[in-house]
Amino acid sequence: MTMPLSAGQLNLVLCHCCGQACPVAHARCDRCDGALHRRKPNSLARAWAFLVASLICYVPANILPVMYTDILGSGSGNTILGGILEFWNSGGWDLALLIFIASVVVPCTKFLVLGTLLVSCQRRSRWAPIERGKMFRMIEVVGYWSMLDVLVVALVVALVQFQSLSSIDPRGGILFFGLVVLLTMIAAISFDPRIIWDSEVEDG
């Protein structure tokens, strides 16, 4: 089978806003006025920066409590993992699993996948490009589900406010966890998956 042609070889560039094929000489798409780039600018450096920042935030996100529960005078702080264990011990294994997937499995998978993609693209590796592309599309689809814990804390905190009787307050951990989600999403958006194929196309 002959190698399919890539846009670069035909002097074309894809407009990310409207999907049109534009001449590579143009700076803006003539249909939607969107900015045109052959590859997303500084893709690898930006993705690395956001990935490292999110990894740093992931530490306090897991160490600090995410909320402080005070029901009828007895108060306790809860970390993300502590909340999952509490569900598990009280018999709610299904919910524990759901939160575990959303707040532990999904972010860790994102770290691993983005790290693997960045390292392999930087080394211009030609290893398994189809599979690496699939991994990228997977984290694009599942990535934002880790917002789950942030939204749950927001709702619970807003509801349980009975003045002196009992209240639930948010704590710093949830702020860092929110940042982890935000930063990994920006890292994934900054990464240009077309770089996965560049070494194969350009090096022949």
């Binding site: 042609l5 846009a7 990310h16 999907g19 996965i196 194929w197």
Partner: peptide, 9 residues
């Protein structure tokens, strides 16, 4: 149509 994941035309 250009593939947004690998730039194939």
């Amino acid at each position: 149509i250009i593939c947004e994941y690998c730039d194939t035309v």
